[in-house]
Design a protein around this nucleic acid. Sequence first.
DNA 1: CTCGTAATAT
DNA 2: CATATTACGA
Length: 290
Amino acid sequence: MREEDSNWFAKWEEELPKPEELMPLSQTLITPDLAIAFDIPNPTSPNPQSKQQQTPHVQSSQPNSSAEFESTELNGGGGGDEPARTLKRPRLVWTPQLHKRFVDAVAHLGIKNAVPKTIMQLMSVDGLTRENVASHLQKYRLYLKRMQGHSNSGSGGSNAQSLSGAGVDPAMDNLFASSPVPAHFLHPGRGNSDHFMPFVPVTPMQHHHHMGVVVGHHPQVQQQYRQFGSLANGHFEHPFLSRQSQQQVQRMGTSVHNGSPVVSSYVEDVDSATAVNGRKVLTLFPTGED
DNA sequence: CTCGTAATAT
DNA sequence: CATATTACGA
């Protein structure tokens, strides 16, 4: 009765590779080429930590998440014209929203298909590279393993780990913990290769959150917050809207089928701002949309 | 060739 | 400290 487990898979085919169709879901990442080509910070009068201006007419009609990059490297100034090639992308800042999309994609894909390339494509985040995802995926897996090993859930705010001696609290716990991890999709199907699809039509809750840059000033602050617009550095950039070409889709199950068009309501809800141990994480999310 | 992982660099 | 990058096996 089931040998074909590609039912769910089929659905996405419809909404997947059509650039036109998936465009509305495209996120905003800035490509370095554009970034530098456009706004080369030549701050004769630096305007750091000011308000964001320049709210361009974004063509996105939906609140998308944007990934922010950290400003790295500044034009040496002077003389030099560099070849527009060989540009390296700025460091991607994994914001909870972006991570959520990541988790969502993984959850929807199933462990089996949750490989960097697929995730990246499903996320449809413009500018995101396979390496970006792969790197983060690595960490994500480690995070899950860590909790599994200790029989503990990771949502809600239950943190309990106290191993004597070793540091069992490495880091991004707050980032990962901020994301509503679906069931622990760990464990690949051993014996049963069927996975479930948590298609939970989350209640369309319209939340209005105003997220400012909250810097919980903790004594002994480390460089932990500075990624939010680099306000710690006095240097920021604006998420530019850019249209990138879509990668070619490799061969995949291209079976025709029909079915009920599932209305996938994406919910980009994130709370974060979870005060953990006096350490505040924040979720800054811009697009300048309100 | 892509993924998975560990080590390593920034 | 968080990411990126690299190396190597599968």
